[in-house]
Amino acid sequence: MKKPLWYEKLERWVEGDSPALPEPLAHVENPEPVKEEEAPVQHGPSLLRSAGGTAMNRLTTAFGILCCAIFALLMLTTVAYLPRFGDADNAPENETSRRYIEQGLEEVGATNLVTNIILVYRGFDTYGESCVLFLGATAVIMLLEADRKNTSQKDRLALRRSDALDEEERNQILGHITTVLMPVIFLYGLYILCNGHLSPGGGFAGGSILGGALILCENAFGARRVQSFFNHKVYHIIKVGALILYAVLICYTIYVGANGLPNLIPLGTPGSILSAGIILPINVAVGLEVACTMYAFYTYFGRGDL
């Protein structure tokens, strides 16, 4: 079957090849067919690489497109049955959201209503998300930690060689720019983290900015410099401590709210930084959790160690 010209052009443009080169398309069908028996590790990638090559792959592609089309059709049908935007008796107009909007400021104390809802009214769900992050990082550590059982001598040599190459090529430009920018990025992350109850942002956004800053630090100064202040001990303390802090606070809120007891934590004046009771510590806990998880994902995916 001959593909139409526009499709070929689109495909080549998407591939990143030059549109001016008239090279044939079918040249990476099976890059190393001989090596596949002796190196089973190469099998998965080469299967992924030549999608659309053989008949089986074409069938898989067709099946995938069919699944996507059916799913898109289902979603569009659902959209057709949604209530009209702005109707008086829509689901968002019921008493729950009215209570969130009208009394959220007095009951919880944060001027950012979204934070009120996700951290206190629906705090249990967000606690579940934090647990998911914790479990994800734990699973990554269990699977990818490079200890004596799952690394060979070759892997260790390759890692050491790449480390030596990094040290040798330790980049002056990146180092200087990172020295200039690192405090600003950390400050921005902390601002978003600590102002989650006053302005947009909060734990997840600020934590991922902090994690990205740690990743940049690791890239610019090398893993050893980061390990000097962020080693296994610090990592485990922060991670478990943040989760326990969150769990205690959310248990307290649920207990107080369910039994109708008075809230002992002062709410403060709305709009100041030390207001909104438990939201600020919860935001800090979530942010630390997310930052640790992101950095752990990065290092364990890359080197298999913190």
Binding site: V114, A205, F301
Partner: peptide, 22 residues
């Protein structure tokens, strides 16, 4: 804006790095 910040930090920044590492 809450979602926008999170999407820009997680969906664009960290996800791309993790996919490339994978």
């Amino acid at each position: 804006p809450d979602l926008a910040i999170t999407e820009a930090a997680v969906g664009v920044g960290i996800d791309t790095i993790l996919f490339l590492l994978a």
